[in-house]
Nucleic acid binder design. Structure first.
Lengths: 348, 348
DNA sequence: CCGTATATAGAAAGCGCTTGCTGTAACGCT
DNA sequence: AGCGTTACAGCAAGCGCTTTCTATATACGG
């Protein structure tokens, strides 16, 4: 049998109500009584029953963080930052909160399932990270779920994900379009006119926005795009490797390859090297995100830095009600172009 | 007001008990009744109240995964694999389980706090990943906590962490010592006699075991170790960079650098390159773990592959009671030496 | 010195669910 | 036909906590 509140109360010679109040610290209790209770708690090694507490109080100290791929540092960094902000005391009585990271693996079903699970646990807040899946039915289902969560008092924050209008969710969106455009403009400025683009999976907002930025830059400079120059793949290195070989096969005259993210760019570099091409002398490469390893690549990667940790921290604070939501519930987070060794003037 | 079991019962014209049984599927219910209930659930958009359910049933569907650093793919990969095994149906009624990843940041206090939080939530299982902190007091506190959890019916699995005897926890330990030894022996076999070692943080089992393996290899070949050849640091790239410069300063005649893990090794490579040294012609470099990016480094990294995903998956299955625990509750997981471009014969 | 405000503690009513036990038909057997 | 079984369904007692309301004790103002 585990120790209950009543046991502690008996030992401290007070009522269960008093013990509860001491533990929650939300009601005046005489110092001497408090001490007696705390002593009993300690002696009995009492641990509050979370479910019972959540049931009675109709709130829980669970905070959910949904990520597409926990093995990807892009999400790991955000999750880490969010969790760091959540760990501390917040809302109800200096109580610790349990930040739970849920890995959807990019699957629509799991995303929805996790949201239901969190709703079931009456989570205090939920942070959804990364791009959304662009499927009308799924979007609608997600929005409905989010709205329901928000209605039930769960604070919902989107971090690095487009806003979901009329759902009550607060959005910290990454300016993927702007970053993509800036990146490609840098390459164009260097003199590149034949640029390959390795996009992420289709039906993802992040993929689409980055690609749109790329195309906007091309259009702005009057460069007509060849459909052969775009290949879709996954957000991992392997995919970048294969896509680059494909790109090279389709048009060996490309002088630059823009990747959907840094991992993909690394794969692209490997493929280029394996094809006997030098970076950036023969082909320039650019990534996106500026993950920690990007500066370590040889040559170091030109990319767009996304303030993942900062955005995550802010999302965490907003989720905890420790920071005000941005006006209109939407804020755009800009990326910063990082020009490094992997981009240079095109070969003549 | 949210929808409750009673509402569903009323709508389906049955008793709450019946609804509960339909939902849990652990008691015979006539097909026609079940359908009626399910229909009502659907129509009312009913979501079970997790805390209430956990309270009444004295169990919850939460599974905790503790990691030292969620932004590090080493943990991300394990967590991902564990979670994949847990997501599915298990134990009680095809019910989904909520796998929660808790980021301790390597802090002893947070580790303990999270364990308490999970205990409070009456977690169904807990998986502790990665090396443990070697502090007697902390160890004792952890062991006591783990024992308490196990006593309360929570299954505890250690993945990549040394066994905790008499705690009821099941351990899947990585053979860090053996891997470290094999790695250094490879280097010695190549002809190296002056090897630098960049160790991880002190007071960590992983750090100690890998270092012990390294020293065992040296000893086995009659190489006397110079204390200047070992530097401690963190498990990240930055630390590897700095430690390598320090190593070079202390003894420029080193012909090989063994790193605590792959990230550190990457930092070492960068430092060597920045010092005008070629890899492996001037200095060989070796890592540990074989994370995905290691093969992409230039030159690709010689390292010890740890089957992180496999071990994680197994830990997950054991935690769910879907796979039998190894005999004695302890299993050692071996690493595999991956010889690649970063190691070669020493310069003469 | 009394009436009222103030501080502190307890009693008790749930929170929404699970489950042991108790019906009550319908069924099968002799 | 009579009776033990079997298959469902409902009743009701909690699970361990929070919180409203109430009770008591002390303090204060006049």
């Amino acid at each position: 049998m585990t120790v209950t509140l009543a046991d502690v109360a008996a030992r401290a010679q007070v009522s269960p109500a008093t013990v509860s109040r001491v533990l929650n610290g939300n009601y005046p209790v005489a110092a001497s009584t408090r001490e007696r209770v705390l002593k009993a708690v300690d002696e009995l090694d009492y641990v509050l029953n979370g479910p019972a507490s959540a049931l009675a109080a109709a709130t829980s100290d669970l905070v959910g963080i949904l990520v597409n791929d926990i093995a990807d540092p892009f999400f790991g960094i955000m999750a880490s930052a969010i969790q760091a902000e959540i760990g501390g005391p917040g809302g109800r009585a200096g109580g610790e909160r349990l930040a739970v990271v849920c890995n959807t693996g990019g699957s629509p079903e799991r995303e929805l399932t996790y949201l239901t699970l969190l709703q079931r646990q009456r989570a205090a807040a939920v942070v959804l990270t990364g791009g959304a899946i662009e499927d009308a039915a799924h979007q609608a289902a997600m929005d409905a779920k989010v709205r329901k969560l928000a209605d039930a008092g769960t604070r919902v924050v989107l971090c690095g994900r487009p806003p979901a209008p009329d759902t009550g969710a607060i959005a910290l969106t990454f300016d993927n379009r702007g970053g993509g455009q800036e990146l490609t403009e840098h390459l164009i400025g260097l003199g590149h006119r034949r640029l390959g683009y390795i996009a992420g999976p289709e039906e993802r907002t992040t993929t689409r926005h980055r690609l749109e930025g790329h195309r906007a830059a091309l259009a702005a400079h009057g460069i007509e795009e060849d459909p052969r120059w775009t290949v879709h793949g996954r957000y991992d290195r392997r995919s970048g490797y294969e896509a680059t070989l494909e790109l090279l096969r389709r048009d060996p005259s490309l002088t630059a390859v823009v990747a959907a993210n840094d991992s993909v760019a690394l794969g692209a570099c490997a493929a280029l090297r394996d094809s006997g091409l030098r970076i950036p002398e023969d082909v320039s490469v650019a990534g996106f995100d500026d993950l920690p390893f990007s500066i370590d690549a040889v040559p170091s990667l030109t990319t767009v830095r996304l303030p993942l940790a900062e955005a995550g921290a802010r999302a965490g604070r907003i989720a905890m009600g420790r920071e005000e939501a941005p006006p209109g519930g939407i804020a755009s987070v800009r990326g910063e172009l990082m020009v490094r060794g992997s981009s240079g003037v095109p070969r003549s």
